[in-house]
C-alpha cells in the first residue's frame, strides 16, 4: 500500500482482530447487541458507527489543543451528538423502515463507549490523519463482530440473509427443511446475541493464547 505506511496499516488492522473493540477492549456493547437479529440492521449500524467515529475522531483531533481538559467530556458529547443527529436524519429520510427497527439505538451511538473511548485514548493525543485511520479501524472491528452475530442470528433464527430466504421455504418444506430442519426461533431473542458474542470470544482466545485472562 503506497498511501499508508506500515504503522498506519497497523492502526486499521489491529482493531479488526487482536485489539477488537468489542471482544478485547469490551467497549460499545451497549448499543450493539439488541439490533443484531437481522443482518441488514447490523450492517447499517456498522456503517453509522463508521461515519460517526471516523469524522468524530478527526474533529476531536483538530480541536485537541483548544479544548480545556475540564470540559472535554461535554465537548466530545456535543460533537458526537451532532454527528448522530445527521445519521438519524439521513436514515429517517432515506430508510424510514430501518430507522423504525433501529429505534432508539441510533441515538444510543452517542453513549457508545467505543466512541468516547477512542476520543479519550487516541484522538486527544494524535494528529487528524492518524485519528481518522484509528477511527476507521475501530469502527470496522465493531462492524465485523456485529455482522458475524447478525449473520448467525438471522440465518439460524429465520433462515434468511438480508431478508432473502437461503435455506428454502419452511412452509413448502423445500431445501434443508425437506430433511426435517427447523428454524430456531430462540436465536431471535435478545439474550442469544450475548451468548454468540461469548462464543466468538471463546474461539478468538483459544486461537490466541496471549489474550487469556487469569
Amino acid at each position: 500500500m503506497g498511501l499508508l505506511s506500515k504503522k498506519d496499516t497497523k492502526l486499521i488492522t489491529d482493531p479488526l482482530a487482536d485489539n477488537n473493540p468489542i471482544t478485547i477492549q469490551v467497549l460499545g456493547i451497549c448499543s450493539a447487541l439488541a439490533i443484531t437479529a437481522e443482518l441488514k440492521a447490523s450492517l447499517v449500524m456498522g456503517i453509522a458507527v463508521l461515519f460517526v467515529l471516523g469524522v468524530g475522531n478527526v474533529v476531536i483531533s483538530l480541536l485537541r489543543n483548544l479544548i480545556p481538559s475540564k470540559i472535554r467530556i461535554i465537548v466530545q458529547l456535543i460533537v458526537v451528538a451532532s454527528l448522530v443527529i445527521i445519521v438519524d436524519q439521513v436514515l429517517k429520510a432515506f430508510a424510514f423502515e430501518l430507522s423504525k427497527t433501529l429505534s432508539v439505538f441510533i441515538g444510543l451511538i452517542i453513549t457508545n463507549c467505543i466512541i468516547m473511548g477512542r476520543f479519550e485514548a487516541f484522538a486527544l493525543g494524535n494528529g487528524p490523519w492518524k485519528s481518522f485511520l484509528d477511527g476507521i479501524g475501530n469502527a470496522l472491528g465493531y462492524a465485523v463482530i456485529l455482522i458475524i452475530v447478525g449473520f448467525f442470528r438471522e440465518l439460524l433464527g429465520s433462515g434468511t440473509l438480508f431478508g432473502i430466504p437461503v435455506l428454502g421455504d419452511p412452509i413448502e418444506k423445500t431445501g434443508v427443511y425437506s430433511i426435517g430442519y427447523e428454524n430456531n426461533g430462540f436465536m431471535l431473542m435478545p439474550p442469544m446475541a450475548l451468548i454468540i458474542v461469548g462464543l466468538i470470544i471463546w474461539v478468538q482466545r483459544s486461537r490466541n493464547k496471549d489474550l487469556i485472562e487469569d
Partner: peptide, 23 residues
Amino acid sequence: VPAPLRGLGITFIITGLMGIGFL
C-alpha cells in the same frame, strides 16, 4: 472455567442465560 472462556467470555454467556431467565 475453560481458560479461553475465563473472565469476559463466561460473563457474556452467564448474562445471556440470565436474560433467558428474565424472558
